[in-house]
Design a protein around this nucleic acid. Structure first.
Length: 597
RNA sequence: GGCCCAGUGGUUCAGUUGGUUAGAACGCCGGCCUGUCACGCCGGAGGUCGAGGGUUCGAGUCCCUUCUGGGUCGCCA
């Protein structure tokens, strides 16, 4: 039995009434959160997106027929109630409820929609398994924590628009159906019906279009843009995600950093009432790697890496000296106070190290009496051990961990061990926000698979002027005018100053191993456009989902996206992706041929 | 693609060394109850222990395969 709401007008949302409204006649509508049927009187907690409001049903005010209807109410029924706001007597005030001092005495009730018992209870801090939550996402989204997350997301988007608009940015949309650019992540492809055998690609980012907008003279552009990457998912990675994307003309790195520091400061102040100090801390890429083993360092705690290569380069322990001799390094971190960690736990850290490519993990426990427990000290002189301990500021009760390998393995191993130690020591407080910029990224990185250099950021990133001389002779040495904003070990966003000179762009393509024909084939429209007057320009893009994830202290990006995908990029609710019928395939000129991979 | 973790009424979990009829809480259904707000009291329904195979006199428990979900490495300009 569902009734119409004809003749009724919602006068108030559930928590938009207070003691000021006592004796007001109101009409409220929402979902039944909870029913407490005491026999002669029935209490209902009515829920809408603002919160809860208690409704009282009593035959003396609603009549026998209305009361009988109220007895039928169950969880998640959608109802409309006309009634009078009354104050509660002192002993019946509920201090846990925003509206706990008042209630609505119902004079009429309409059941607008009945509901089956939901597969899980709609409540805050639910620990229902995520696959079930995602199958019934529309019910999951009724939970107050998810509603808060999405409301915060809305606020962030609105403040961003307001701020950037005040800074004279223009919001301009760029195409979703665009051209595949094989550099970088895999594209999502969309077949063309009109041009059989041809495909659009969904954008990985609006990169090229925003650069063209600069060339067209729009000066400052932004967009809250959907982006798509057909790569495997993670807790902070979805195949479709949202960027706050921007580009500015006639600016240098300092200007881009300044605008974005102020944007972030405003967002955290207005949304969370947290003061962010600016200018933010800055680290060069090299410093970040040397100190934290990561280009997105978590600065909420210390435990920095220490380079021990000089101390051990001539030692008798071949694993150490040999690594240094072959161009690698030996570094360590001090897990302060973890000297009492059981051997099994230390071995587990060693296993963790192996997942990052390390061949092993050496360690020294400094006992409370100052002696050492270790499997490697017997290969080292007392002086070498003392020097290592001293360099790492080792104290009784500490656990020193070492990794010897090529620099990239050492960085990623110790960087991740450092995070694990931070977790174990409970140093990762999600209510603390430590921002930093990481600058001077390498322009290029060696791709083992393709046996050539690839752009670390993208092929339009400007090299640092003092490194331009190495672009041909020693490309790996060239640093880029590129910058990432990092928050608590998470890359919030990144950008760069772009190349606007043709000669430098051509050298860049040469360093990437593209012939002129290759370059024109892939980016011809951009290169052609650049013949017609390009302003110096640069920009940045934030991952909006990640910003919200950190602001809401969520563990997963899925908790800040209304309808996210699961690990295999499918949607448990819609069951996308799905097959299509032959007629659709025929129109597109496509035939399915399943290939064993 | 590799590795790790989880899967037991609707939900969250317990289930000992392999041993009788698989338990609890919440939820659900029915009854009673006029001030509850974790309402209370009484009664009840609800399980192919993710699926398949194996070992065994006997499997929720051990083994193999597989499915689902999560984390992670590779990957993500």
């Amino acid at each position: 039995m569902s009734e119409s709401m004809q003749g009724l007008k919602r006068t108030n949302k559930c928590t938009e009434v207070s003691a000021k409204n006592i004796d007001d006649k109101v009409t409220v509508m929402g979902w039944v959160q909870k029913r407490r049927d005491l026999g002669g009187v029935i209490f209902i907690d009515l829920r809408d997106r603002t919160g809860l409001l208690q409704i009282v049903f009593d035959a003396s005010s609603i009549g026998d027929e209305g009361f009988a209807k109220a007895e039928k109410l169950r969880s998640e029924f959608v109802i409309a109630v006309e009634g009078i706001i009354e104050s509660r007597s002192d002993e019946t005030i509920n201090p846990n409820l925003k509206t706990g001092e008042i209630e609505v005495r119902a004079h009429s009730l309409r059941i607008l929609s009945e509901a089956e018992t939901p597969p899980f209870q709609i409540e805050e801090n639910s620990n229902v398994k995520e696959d079930l939550r995602l199958k019934y996402r529309y019910l999951d989204l009724r939970r107050p924590d998810l509603q808060r997350n999405l409301i915060m997301r809305h606020k962030v988007a609105m403040i961003t628009r307001e701020f950037l608009s005040n800074e004279e940015f223009l919001e301009i949309e760029t195409p979703m159906l665009t051209k595949s650019t094989p550099e970088g992540a895999r594209d999502y492809l969309v077949p063309s019906r009109v041009h059989q055998g041809n495909f659009y690609a969904l954008p990985q980012s609006p990169q090229i279009f925003k650069q063209l907008l600069m060339l067209s003279g729009y000066d400052r552009y932004f967009q809250i843009a959907k982006c798509f990457r057909d790569e495997d998912l993670r807790a902070d990675r979805q195949p479709e995600f949202t960027q706050i994307d921007m580009e500015l003309s006639f600016v240098d790195q300092e200007k881009v950093i300044d605008v974005n520091e102020r944007l972030m400061q405003k967002l955290f102040k207005e949304v969370l009432d947290i003061d962010i100090e600016i200018p933010m801390q800055r680290l060069t890429y090299k410093e970040a790697m040397d100190r934290f083993g990561s280009d997105k360092p978590d600065l909420r705690f210390g435990i920095e890496l220490v380079d021990l290569s000089d101390i051990v380069k001539d030692c008798g322990f071949k694993v150490f000296s040999g690594t240094v001799a072959s161009g690698g390094s030996v570094r360590g971190i001090n897990a302060e106070g973890l000297g009492n960690l059981p051997r099994r736990q230390i071995d587990a850290l060693g296993e963790l190290a192996k997942t990052y490519g390390a061949k092993g993990m050496a360690w020294i426990v400094i006992n409370e009496d100052g002696t050492y427990k270790s499997a490697i000290t017997k290969f080292l002189t007392d002086e070498e051990v003392e020097n290592m301990v001293k360099a790492m500021n080792g104290k009784p009760g500490d656990l020193l961990l070492f990794c010897a390998d090529s620099n990239d393995v050492v960085y990623s191993t110790l960087g991740n061990l450092r995070l694990e130690i931070g977790r174990r020591l409970e140093l990762l407080d999600d209510s603390v926000f430590k921002f930093a910029w990481v600058t001077e990224f390498p322009l290029l990185e060696w791709n083992k698979e393709h046996k050539r250099y690839t752009a670390m950021h993208h092929p339009f990133t400007m090299p640092m002027e003092e490194d331009l001389q190495y672009l041909e002779s020693d490309p790996g040495r060239v640093r880029a005018i590129a910058y990432d904003m990092v928050l608590n070990g998470c890359e919030l966003g990144g950008g760069s100053i772009r190349i606007h000179q043709r000669d430098i762009q051509e050298k860049m393509f040469a360093a990437l191993g593209f012939s002129k024909e290759d370059a024109y084939d892939r980016f011809g429209f951009l290169l052609n456009a650049f013949k017609y007057g390009v302003p110096p320009h640069g920009g940045l893009a934030f991952g909006l989902d990640r910003i919200i994830m950190l602001m809401t202290q969520s563990d997963s990006i899925r908790d800040v996206i209304a309808f996210p995908k699961v690990k295999d990029a499918s949607c448990p609710m819609t069951e996308a992706p799905g097959t299509v019928d032959d007629k659709q395939l025929n129109e597109l000129g496509l035939k399915i041929d399943t290939i064993e991979i």
